[in-house]
Design a protein around this nucleic acid. Sequence first.
DNA 1: TACAAAAACTAATATGCGTTAGTTTTGTTA
DNA 2: TAACAAAACTAACGCATATTAGTTTTTGTA
Lengths: 197, 197
Amino acid sequence: MSKIKLGKNTSKKDVIIKKSSALFKTKGFNAASMRELADAVGVEAPSLYNHIGSKSELLQTICFKVANEFTTQLTETENKKCSITDKIELIIRFHITMMLDKFDEVFVANHEWKHLQEPFLSNFLNQRRNYEKRLVAIIEEGIAKKELKNINPYVAVLTLLSAVRGLEFWQRHKKNISIKVLEDDMVTHLLKGITML
Amino acid sequence: MSKIKLGKNTSKKDVIIKKSSALFKTKGFNAASMRELADAVGVEAPSLYNHIGSKSELLQTICFKVANEFTTQLTETENKKCSITDKIELIIRFHITMMLDKFDEVFVANHEWKHLQEPFLSNFLNQRRNYEKRLVAIIEEGIAKKELKNINPYVAVLTLLSAVRGLEFWQRHKKNISIKVLEDDMVTHLLKGITML
DNA sequence: TACAAAAACTAATATGCGTTAGTTTTGTTA
DNA sequence: TAACAAAACTAACGCATATTAGTTTTTGTA
């Protein structure tokens, strides 16, 4: 068998990861069984192990793929020559895009990371803590430059991250509101508030 | 044995519910075992069943207790004679208080509700949907009265709810920031934004 | 002290889980 | 077509789970 996959450009392993993302999101990591996953893939459960090492490994793959995407994008934004306000807007918009484009994976990374085994659990948490610290630094710079109000930067980061994360509840209203309105209104809300003055 | 509990005013059932809240929060509903819960209570697993009906029942109790508290408070706020902005501030502050005072229970209601069995699952989701609709109505009234910017009310509710919910990540910075600063800065952020102008 | 209810215990059951072992089928290349 | 590897299959193992049954201990009251 050739080492280079022909035909469709996705390996069976990719299919398994994709299906497991959806399953872990819907039922939670522990409640999702390998037999269910096998059903979704269209195979018997033991056959999965021809492609993956373990159930845990699936979770690791999903969580770190997401974490790395966020980290990479943050580095790019940090290096941009623009105002702090613009940087924050870029970050908000990237989070929204990720939530909408890779919903299952981001959801799993947000909710099921606690079922990672060591040392992956510690790695993941460190990576997330680091991400937050870099966001705090950006907010602090904005305050120092008088671009932003003198609020606590940790509170601001918490509020920003939590708000965009809440997009996981979005699907319900999908039909009524365009993604553009969603993004624009959320950016406005988080930067300028909702009150008139 | 008397029917009225003497001494401490909490029954063993209350202890079990409290301990299960903490356990479900830490490990998740499925990963938390009745043996662990029994350990935490200081008893063998089967003894729990002298006080409770089932593991599922524990989750139901936790979720609906929280849901009812939020619903009750919202009704009170709706009936208040004050500006829309003040109502929103009241709601934000109540959510923050709940997150800080009943962290375990609120966390479980937010994260583990999906493991509720029918018909409790549907009931819970209906109750939550109804809560959101009432919040949207408040925002809409604020927009109509020109108190609030003309943003999409669903997006605003999503942003507000998600932001306060994010307080579940709070414990990390607890030492550095007082609850007052936290509340005030978050209210400012969500009402007036973070940019200077 | 004797009774009765509450609540603890031990033992066991049925079920579902992730995973392994061993075998057969499938598909590609020589 | 023969050979070989990839990937499917069936069967089964060992373990952990929630829960039940049956019994004993504890506890409060008459």
